[in-house]
Design a protein around this nucleic acid. Structure first.
Lengths: 342, 342
DNA sequence: TATATTTGCGCAAAAGTTTGCGCAAATAAC
DNA sequence: GTTATTTGCGCAAACTTTTGCGCAAATATA
């Protein structure tokens, strides 16, 4: 027998294991346990410096006080910030984070989800990969609530919190149009993701509205520095070099800036930029980059709140009538000097 | 009975639970189980699409195939990169990461370690907080191996992998001295941490060697943007403004750059900078920042290797003669344009 | 044919917690 | 002095897996 178990306390205090369990889980009242017994148990427990065996508890209760967190990559500062906030918020509520990294790989993403479920996480917060919500919907129906952050699926039976990316795309493009730009290239990220799709849609619609549909250019395929660098390079070397870039993430922007520097061009003069995301370092660049900032902190906090509600109230399931929360938070603009007037 | 358990397989295949367990854990050989039985079991298992209940297994075996990862903050890109690599390396080896954030709070750090132990993690990788190794040594002795990354303790009974921060401090300072600077201020980070202490030592020794001990200036107290900004501001506004800054982390540098911009000074002309860490965005600044880069990838990978070895071979414990690995990897220099000649 | 050995597998305990059921004893009611 | 009610708590099952011990049956040896 372990020194630190209900059994040990039971032996010391001379009551049964069951009684100890009930006392320590605050059920002394409804189990009508006498004050004297309660005190004996507490005394023994604190003498042994007892803390419950979480594994046994999880096994028994089918829950673990753990939240699974699944991101495409922690090394992207945008996701790292989400992680940071989610971790803090969950800890505040007594939950521990089990974190995984899907490396933008849908197979791995699904495997990770299954691993989390096997570990009986009480809920999952994820930035998903791929276009297929079915798997996640199944998990959410049969096992534990899931809240999507940033990326989501259309008309899916899952809660999500995201930025109004379409609006973001519109605002960015309009900013460039208003400054007189007519030739604006868009370097996109992960093309299977809704945020990317919506940002691009905003861009395209805005261009169309300005009568520039035949001057649209959308390239790229990943939210990474490499992609930003590669695509920007190609664009800058092209015959009819655009006068402005709309880069769809902080990483893409970073890569683009590298390409621009190599080419010897001046940002805000030779080439203008509006970037998605709010990266501190981009703010301190000279010139500072104009950004469409996402309300990351709110997004992460709200996601945790929604998840907690779903955990506390699995009633939603009872009649197959789960209710899902779909939130689209407004982006904001961080003005910089990277947009030049033509 | 759950549909997905040893018991279910046992019932279908008509053997006992024990036999199923032995077959599925590859112990059919040493338990001398007949080929026919083995096949029946496999058939039933694959029919049910069995996968073991990890919690029950962990409870029984006192191990979990999980590694605890404990960082001061995920939002610092330096730590995020460590996390990213550790996660990937562990997954490669079939381990899952349980990640926590101590927010630079020693109490919370200890609580988090205890939580990890309670969950029976097989090992821990940590960037610790505080000056006190005793607690960690105890955990490592009694529960599971611990490998420290980046931060460590002198003469402690714990393995660690870190950068040769003293060398880094020396190289940085010498770089500035060689360019003719005589008045060099150092903005430091978390003062309880060894890396910080060693970087500062390198700086001080180097200054002393150049006969400049009375012109040393070390300020600051956290690896954060705010601290970098605040201290740089104060330094730049001081009477005898130094001609160069040695900033001890990427975050501090970012803050310092903000202060410099606000003050209207030109980096590399009015004020020179050498920074610790290797942040991509600092490389794309104009002018690009000269940096003392830490071998983050190697550090993280080696840390995982050491941990895996310790897990595989708990023999070290048997005679109280554990052996600890202490590694100090060499930093490298990333040349930029932020150091001006005087 | 009787004893020894090997082969094949099951029983039950163990890990630590939670909880439905129900047993006794004390108190209340008649 | 019975019967009913309440109080206080224990028993044992359940969650799933692992493993030491040992029982039968089959085969080999004497």
């Amino acid at each position: 027998m372990k020194e630190d178990s209900l059994a040990a306390i039971a032996k010391i205090s001379g009551v049964s294991i069951a009684t100890v369990s009930r006392v320590l889980s605050g059920k002394a009242g409804q189990a009508r346990i006498s004050k004297a017994t309660v005190e004996k148990v507490y005394a023994a427990a604190s003498k042994l410096d007892y803390s419950p065996g979480i594994l046994a508890r999880s096994l028994r209760n089918d829950k673990s006080k753990m939240i699974g967190l699944l991101l495409p990559t922690v090394s992207n500062p945008y996701f790292a910030e989400i992680a940071s906030i989610v971790i803090a918020e969950c800890r505040l509520r007594g939950y521990t984070i089990m974190m995984m990294d899907s490396a933008e790989d849908e197979k791995l993403f699904h495997k990770s989800i299954s691993a989390l479920v096997k570990r009986k996480v009480d809920g999952i917060i994820a930035v998903p990969c791929g276009r297929q919500p079915l798997f996640l919907e199944g998990i959410s129906r049969d096992y534990c609530p899931i809240v999507l952050v940033d990326r989501y699926y259309k008309d899916c039976n899952l809660s999500y919190v995201t930025t109004d990316n379409y609006q973001g795309g519109v605002i960015a493009t309009r900013k460039l149009l208003d400054a007189g730009h007519r030739s604006i290239a868009c370097i996109q990220g992960e093309i299977t993701s809704m945020p990317n799709f919506n940002r691009v849609s905003g861009y395209l619609d805005c261009m169309k509205e300005a009568g520039l549909e035949d001057r649209c250019l959308v390239t790229g395929d990943a939210f990474s520095i490499e992609n930003g660098y590669r695509e920007a390079r190609a664009i800058l070397n092209s015959k009819n070099r655009p006068t402005a870039l709309f880069t769809l993430s902080n990483t893409i922007t970073l890569g683009a800036i590298q390409a621009i520097k190599e080419k010897g061009l001046k940002i805000g003069k030779d080439i203008s930029i509006v970037s998605f995301d709010n990266n501190v370092s981009l703010r301190y660049f000279t010139p500072s980059i104009t950004m469409i900032s996402q309300p990351v902190e709110d997004m992460a906090k709200v996601a945790v709140q929604i998840l907690m509600k779903a955990i506390a109230n699995p009633a939603g399931n009872s009649k197959g009538s789960q209710s899902f929360t779909h939130l689209r938070l407004a982006p904001s603009v961080i003005e910089g000097q990277s947009v030049g007037r033509l």
